[in-house]
């Protein structure tokens, strides 16, 4: 009888009132505390970036989060500086073109390595993967020599070519194409589509979540890229945003308030990209949960 009493709904429950909240145990408190600390660690740099962008130069080195005399003068200065728009446009062009190329090339190579059986397939895959172990710092010299040889220095192509296809993207796409049943591909083959049509019409729509993730990674990576664009560009007009922002000020004095202002403005496109593509990722997760 006691059990029956316990599971019988109370009048409050039937009326839709909330059940009394259980007191938090120590484990929950520790988890919340860790999450809170993690949140602070991630949010603080952004908060300081916005805070510094609203400060006057003399206040920049004060650690206070709330500016004593908040100003939008820095935003006015940066937005009125013609160079900022050129850098912004350069970054937009480079990040967008690189993202599109990665989506096409990484998925093509990933699809080929996943769905076709040919001699040397495994070796090629391992060779591509092994390039992940080479740090960018080691590659910039051969990249530079190549750019110099082919006349790509200080051009969009020179900035973009090392990132048009990535080993990580190829690996990511190959792994996702593994989840596409071969029956889909074979059914399309029987229905008369050629291999390129099958890749584009059948396989690509089925890996949209992976494409969205790849798009976000590549766009952010190229939007924030610093070392290679700094090396390969000479003229101020060809700078990307991170390179251009670092040039605010001179050797004696770095204009942090302007750099932070530019950085704050430059986060807007990344937020837009994330907001566009995140729904595909979330939808992918939901679809995976509904399968079977």
């Amino acid at each position: 009888m006691a059990v029956v009493e316990e599971i019988r709904p109370t009048s409050e429950a039937l009326l839709g009132t909330k059940p009394p909240r259980k007191p938090a145990n120590m484990g929950q408190i520790i988890r919340w505390l860790l999450l809170f600390i993690g949140g602070i660690v991630m949010v603080m740099p952004i908060a300081y970036m916005i805070s510094t962008s609203l400060k006057w130069p003399h206040e920049v080195y004060n650690v206070n989060l709330i500016p004593e005399e908040p100003t939008i003068e820095n935003y006015t200065y940066v937005l009125e500086d013609g160079r900022f728009y050129a850098w912004f446009l350069n970054s937009i062009v480079i990040a967008t073109v690189t993202t599109i190329c990665n989506i096409l090339f990484d998925s093509l190579v990933g699809y080929t390595l996943c769905k076709f059986r040919f001699p040397g397939r495994y070796i090629i895959f391992i060779a591509i993967l092994s390039t992940l172990m080479i740090p960018t710092e080691m590659l910039v010299i051969p990249w530079y020599l190549m750019s110099q040889q082919f006349g790509w220095l200080d051009t969009y192509w020179g900035i973009m070519f090392p990132g048009l296809m990535t080993a990580f993207g190829t690996f990511l796409m190959k792994q996702f194409f593994e989840t596409v049943p071969d029956d889909f591909i074979e059914a399309a083959r029987i229905d008369g589509l050629n291999e390129l049509q099958i890749w584009w019409t059948v396989a690509m729509p089925l890996v949209k979540p992976a494409l969205a993730a790849l798009a976000i990674f590549v766009f952010l990576g190229n939007w924030t890229a610093f070392i290679w664009p700094l090396i390969v560009t000479n003229s101020v007009e060809m700078y990307t945003l991170p390179v251009g922002l670092s040039s605010f000020g001179d050797e004696a004095d770095v204009a942090w308030e302007l750099i932070m202002t530019g950085a704050a403005i430059s986060t807007i496109p990344t937020l837009v990209v994330f907001l566009i593509f995140q729904r595909f990722i979330i939808r992918g997760v939901v679809m995976a949960g509904l399968k079977g």
Binding site: P181, A187, I190
Partner: peptide
């Protein structure tokens, strides 16, 4: 090629 054989196939997992 499969497309030229004048056949159609129904797969186990529907496809």
């Amino acid at each position: 090629e499969p497309k030229d054989r004048d056949i159609a196939m129904v797969f186990q997992n529907y496809a």
